[in-house]
Amino acid sequence: MSEIEVKHLTKTFEQKGIVVEALKDINLNIEAGDIYGIIGMSGAGKSTLVRCLNYLEKPTDGQVIIAGQDLGALSEKELRKQRSDIAMIFQHFNLLMQKNVLDNVCFPLLIQKVNKKEAKERARELLQIVGLSEKEKAYPAQLSGGQKQRVAIARALASNPKILLCDEATSALDPQTTASILDLLKQINKDLGITIVIITHQMAVIREICNRVAIIEHGVLVENGLVEDIFNHPKSQAARELILRDLPELGENVNTPELPERIQTDRKLRIVFSENSAFEPVIANMILKFNTPVNILRADTKNVGGYAKGEMILGLPDDRHLQVDIETYLKEKGLEIEEVTGDV
């Protein structure tokens, strides 16, 4: 039985008489212990999807089944109880600004009528886990973005949830802070066995931490599977675009206006390194062998799920024969290659 099962989920909104279909017939299975990424451009419907997973948004049609329990069949009261198993963190942290760090972490426990003393003990344990023990008396306004998200994570863990939903949890953070928050999430997943669902528009986040991923475009789930598979062999246009938009640096936006123009003059290849070839100097050897420069338009290698993974986009020389030779050479070296066209 999957931890989270989404069946034929549809969500429509009505705004001023116009019906907007935010999600169309979504089917997903998320297993216990997964770190499951849901990625899409802004407006794709991913935030709506994650809010359907804890019924903050009620689906128009379809089912959300958490550990065998159909959320749609629960009363309002039962649903509130169920929500203590499904914690959530947010892009803008959403801490109580008038309460100090300790009281923020205690908050969900007090809602669940845990007595104050126990709640405080538990909150201190959690602040230890997220590395903020010395800040328990501070107020959110005195903390940095990363620290606020750590408090939010501690608060989310307070009720011993089985699932943690992260809605663009690192989108407001700088690259270093993003990396440290992702490390913390990884650690929580490993040590506490909590299933994590991550909503993001950054492929880098998915590659850094997720084992599975679903790609949402215009409310439709276009592709899902293992991160490795999708990253190496993206089938959908949406997946390809998301991979190409992704920069080596976490959290940066790629859309510099001059970039497409420069690339368009060249024939471009996207090369995917597998675990065996990531640390071989393939490109350097190729340049030596053909005695011709290639233009490295983008390059990135990463640790994905314990394997060295990477990609590069090369602008090839104009000579057609040379292009064929280079492609053949790269294939011989066991690299995945595909031509990249037009609108990168």
Binding site: L56, R80, Q82, S84, A87, M97, F107, P108, Q112, S159
Partner: peptide, 21 residues
């Protein structure tokens, strides 16, 4: 901030909790 109210709802807060807490 509606985000804080949403966070409270996600923790299982009732409307009563949301108003008073």
């Amino acid at each position: 901030d509606p985000g804080v109210i949403e966070a409270a709802r996600s923790m299982g807060a009732s409307n009563f909790d949301i108003i008073f807490k």
